[in-house]
Write a protein that binds this DNA or RNA. Structure first.
Lengths: 148, 148
DNA sequence: ATGGGTGCAAAGGATTTGCAACATT
DNA sequence: AATGTTGCAAATCCTTTGCACCCAT
């Protein structure tokens, strides 16, 4: 059963199961600790001494693009700010990389802190990601209408 | 009414309204475009030529800590990854900076893409932030029980 | 004069890029 | 051979840090 799940997932998504890709996905599946690039690289360089961090970067990005893994952008580096402190949903456009407010979508509201599984939760944020109105329009103008 | 809202908000939160703080918050309120540090710095350096980017960094971080502004961590830099692609809530501990899964919390489920205000949404992520079980325990051991 | 606030310059890290080498079909 | 994949090194960019200066109380 060595790396069987990883292999299956790659082939199901039409991705060639190279040694590195298989190993990275296998690591991800067996270590649900939300590792970042460096942690994965460090952990795997024992088994694959020739592994390059660039490959880890590229592979993980590709995994996320193909929904083989989730990219978690919760880290408090490289952030932007919002003067509006009322709860609302944020939408990130993958094309133009702008962030929009979606006031009409139901957003998580936190009045007071609450406990979940013994953890103290004091903030919540809901993020949507996709392609914004403007970019959709541009795409339609170039390639003919694909979305309505 | 020049910067009246910004002034009010700072004083309400017990923050001294220095020239820079007032200007930064005023900019944030009047530009709900989710700017990052550099955008704010660039935009403001016209009016305040002596402004330092360090001050912008420090001020915004303090604003977020004091809930004067929201910090949005939707940017796809400095990320971590999750091999589990099923929808679940992520919890970020501000103390130990670890990310946990919360499988029992209601998470946004997206089967197919959907439209919101003309934007095409293909992903959704819900983040909780706070202090985790372990860190709460450590805090209690040091300072006496404050949370149950 | 003392603490808080600001700004400069340097350091520290993470990510990206370009290109060459390698593998696979 | 041609395409896809990997790895190295350099470059780039963002963020943090240390320290000195300035302002207000």
């Amino acid at each position: 059963m060595e790396k069987a799940d990883a292999l299956k997932r790659l082939t199901e998504h039409g991705i060639r199961p190279s040694l590195q890709r298989l190993a990275i996905l296998d690591y991800l599946i067996k270590h649900p600790t939300h590792p970042n690039v460096d942690e994965i690289y460090q952990a795997m360089s024992h088994d694959i001494p020739t592994l390059s961090k660039t490959t880890v970067y590229n592979t993980l990005r590709m995994f996320a693009d193909n929904h083989v893994a989730q990219m978690i952008t919760i880290d408090e580096h490289r952030v932007c700010y919002d003067g509006n402190t009322s709860p609302h949903v944020h939408f990130f456009c993958k094309k133009c990389e702008r962030v929009f407010d979606l006031f009409d979508e139901p957003a998580p509201k936190i009045r007071d802190s609450f406990m979940v599984d013994g953890n103290l939760v004091s903030e919540a944020q809901l993020y949507y990601k996709g392609v914004c109105k403007d970019c959709l329009k541009k795409m339609n103008e170039q390639t003919g209408p694909e979305f309505s």
